[in-house]
Design a protein around this nucleic acid. Structure first.
Lengths: 297, 297
DNA sequence: TGCACCGTTCGAATTTTTGCAACACTGGCG
DNA sequence: CGCCAGTGTTGCAAAAATTCGAACGGTGCA
């Protein structure tokens, strides 16, 4: 849904994204001339050039960046108001936008969302799984209400809503020799080939911290930026992978893969952080979901 | 300055204020029918009735209140973005909106603003002097950026930025017998007629607190809701008035009136509070002025 | 009951926005 | 060097939207 009166703002955003009036016009199903006039009118009303006219297209000026950010903030707030109004009508509808690290796609998010939707059937979710930088970028672009991320670098425009200490667990095939134990030691794990998350993923920093302090020699046979890839890999052999353990039953077997707690307690900790863009008013559904999340973790 | 594309929002506000389409239309220099369509179109786009149609006019529905608040917040934020952009152009312009209690109109605000404008000539001010409730109302309606008020009742939608403990001082004519002393005692003051601020003003609560605990019998000859009234009254006779002392030189004589510190230290304290609406992004000039205020108090 | 005031509707007039074609310009490439 | 594909921009006509003026239907008050 889009307010008639806010078309121009979308137009600006489209031009910024497309990088040229002609491409943006095509995406908006209008002619370049009409779009050009909208841009010029707005620039005249603001008294600033929003774009640098380049021979190959248009790039945002500093003022344009500021204004675009305002436009996005305004739209996000308008959508919040809309769900607020829906709530007034008695309809419990609305959507929660979430940007999260991959580790959460496995069990945490699906399960918490499931539980939440059982109690609030009208609320829908938009979950964007991506790396750390993209999570922050999603928050900044108002595409996501909540960001769930490891290893957060404290940025000035973020508000940390919640932090949960996380521990790693070892992931292995169901019939793996170590699966007979309730919990495993790293010393035992390194006797098997290891399939590790790559540095773009959350758990890797913990492992690096551990191996740096220990004398164990890991035999890394696979690195990947996909937890799913790692899980599916260890199913077929005796390799061991690692994953952040987030409030999920450890012993559960799923698709032939199981997880075991790691005994070492001196592991470097790395908190899972839930964050929002500073100064934003979260839509009501997002606030409620945050409470659900807090209960679950 | 007003964005063309936000006309409708102003229209809604006008209708809400005027209480009827016809009056609002008159104020906006358009016909009732045009305005009516704008309202109806917007209601259709939102899917909610913003107004209750009454035989004597229109009143906001709950949804209308919510939406109107959003509109005002949006406009305030847009104005902030505008000054942000002006700043980018190198122009240091902008306005700070202040709502404050009367006690501050005498010396604090004029002087702090004067000092601030010496350093920032481009910044203009809108100072609205009013009572406590109106200060909070101004903040809620986005008419003021900063509210300066005594005796603040902690409302949930306000953020307290700064609190300064205030003391009372005695105000009297320049040639008053007590003016010979550097500081005065309340015991001496009550030997003279008293001109007191009335309960709508900040200092009164402090005085009431004192007299309730003490055995002194005040001889109240004048109560007023205007500090200026009180000051001008004591100039012509031997009455004594009281005023909050806010970082101003005590001994200064102005228009035949002077002030003296009060010796009693057990006076109930009452903090001057600087507040903003919770969740707002203050415009840059307001932030800088707040720093000035902090230095001065 | 009558009157004053309200919001609302209709079709025409007006204003604004859009489309189309052409123009002027820049950067890359043969 | 000149061509060419790409850009933003402008003039004028067409289309769409907003606005106007006048009349209609309803409600509260004297």
């Amino acid at each position: 849904m889009q307010l008639q009166y806010l078309r121009v703002f979308s137009h600006i955003e489209a031009v910024a994204r497309a990088g040229s009036i002609r491409k943006a016009a095509e995406a908006l199903f209008i002619t370049p001339s009409a779009l050009d006039r909208r841009v010029q009118d707005l620039e005249a009303e603001l008294g600033v050039a929003l774009f640098e006219r380049h021979a190959r297209g248009m790039r945002l000026t500093a003022a344009g960046e500021v204004f675009l950010h305002h436009v996005r903030a305004q739209r996000a707030d308008f959508e919040r108001v809309q769900t607020e109004i829906e709530l007034l009508k008695g309809v419990r509808r609305g959507a929660v936008g979430i940007a999260a690290s991959q580790a959460l796609a496995y069990s945490v998010l699906p399960e918490v969302i499931n539980g939440f939707r059982a109690a609030n059937p009208g609320i829908s979710f938009k979950v964007h799984i991506c790396d750390r930088q993209a999570v922050v970028a999603s928050l900044r672009a108002f595409e996501a209400d909540l960001g769930l991320v490891y290893n957060v670098q404290p940025a000035g425009d973020l508000t940390l809503l919640m932090q949960v200490e996380q521990r790693l667990c070892a992931v292995m095939a169901d019939g793996h020799p170590l699966a007979a134990q309730v919990s495993v030691k790293m010393r035992d794990c390194v006797r098997f080939p290891l399939a590790l998350p790559d540095p773009s993923l959350g758990g890797r920093a913990i492992l690096d911290g551990f191996f740096a302090r220990s004398s164990l020699q890991p035999n890394v046979v696979l690195e990947s930026n996909s937890f799913e890839m790692l899980r599916n890999y260890v199913r077929g052999n005796d390799a061991i992978s690692f994953q952040v353990q987030v409030g999920t039953p450890l012993a559960r077997v799923q698709d032939g893969v199981t997880a075991r707690a790691i005994e070492e307690r001196a592991f470097p900790r790395q908190p899972l952080t839930v964050a929002q863009l500073k100064g934003r008013h979260l839509p009501q559904p997002a606030v409620r979901f945050l409470a659900s999340l807090r209960d679950a973790l």
